[in-house]
Structures are given as structure tokens and as C-alpha cells.
Design a protein around this nucleic acid. Structure first.
Length: 147
DNA sequence: TTTCTTACA
DNA sequence: TGTAAGGA
């Protein structure tokens, strides 16, 4: 019922100009424009005066850059990343739709609440992680039932 | 000042 | 691909 705490990510509403994208990814503005022309990436609204890229696209660009550095051709990198992005989007969707918040535990650990663990809606699934030891694990139960 | 397209190096 | 030119 309550809105997701990850609205910004949910709608992919984080938009970045070509100059910033270039700085972030290390891909020149010339390349970015070329990649778009070839259809490897898309800007948000081409009817606008200036190009803007979504956060997902920036991530796509970073993946392509990595593959390029590994020796793949531009086309090969694009095809490979395009498949991976579909999985990435599904994963993002899954995470965003199940994320119920983050909880600080007494012992210095933190827990991400992923919502109900089973169909009975009795227990939640938590991802527990301890920064001091760098250890993490999943746990079912009810850590912090507010109210 | 920044971004855009086009075109040449 | 980089860069210059000339507008927006």
C-alpha cells in the first residue's frame, strides 16, 4: 500500500546530460552520439534540444565500455550487453518491488527487509550484513515488527 | 557556456 | 575517433 522507498530507481527517472555521462563512463561525447546514431543506446527524449540519458543507459554504457576494453567489437559488446540488460532490469524490478526498508540492529549489523518470506505472510526475509566483519547472510523471521 | 550537426584530418 | 566550424 505504501509507496516504494525507491521511487527514484523505480521509474528510472534519474536523468543525466551527455557531458556528465561522458565524465562518469569515460566514453567521449563523440562516441556517445555515434552509439546513439547506430542504435546501441537511446537517449530519453530525442525531440528535446539536448540529449539526456537514463541511469539504466549509463549502466549499459559502462558495461559496453568494459567489454570494449576486453577486446570485443562495438557490435559484439552491444549485443552482449543488450541481453544482460534485460536480466538486469528484471533483477532491479524484483528488488524494488520487494524492498521494504533497511533496519539497524543492536549489534551493529544492518538488515534489508525483502518482505514476506512465505505465502502465509507470517515471516519476512532479511538480508543481514555486518560491515565490521564483511559477513552477510539471509534470515527469515520478524526482526522489527513496528506496532 | 554547453550542446548540436556536419565535415575534414 | 578527435576536433574545428558555425549555429542554437
Amino acid at each position: 500500500m505504501h509507496p516504494s522507498k525507491l521511487e527514484l530507481l523505480k521509474g528510472n527517472k534519474i536523468i543525466i546530460g551527455i557531458s556528465e555521462v561522458s565524465k562518469i563512463t569515460g566514453i567521449s561525447t563523440r562516441q556517445l552520439r555515434y552509439w546513439e546514431k547506430k542504435g546501441y543506446i537511446h537517449s530519453v527524449d530525442r525531440s528535446k534540444r539536448f540529449r539526456e540519458f537514463s541511469l539504466d543507459t549509463v549502466i549499459k554504457i559502462e558495461h559496453m565500455k568494459d567489454l570494449l576494453e576486453e577486446g570485443f567489437t562495438l557490435v559484439a559488446a552491444y549485443e552482449k550487453v543488450d541481453k544482460k540488460m534485460k536480466l538486469f532490469k528484471k533483477m532491479k524490478h524484483l528488488f524494488i518491488n520487494n524492498y521494504e526498508g533497511i533496519i539497524e540492529l543492536e549489534d551493529g549489523k544492518a538488515a534489508i527487509d525483502f518482505g514476506y518470506f512465505n505465502a502465509n505472510e507470517e515471516e519476512h526475509l532479511y538480508f543481514i550484513f555486518d560491515e565490521s566483519t564483511d559477513k552477510s547472510y539471509f534470515q527469515a523471521g520478524n526482526i522489527n515488527n513496528k506496532k
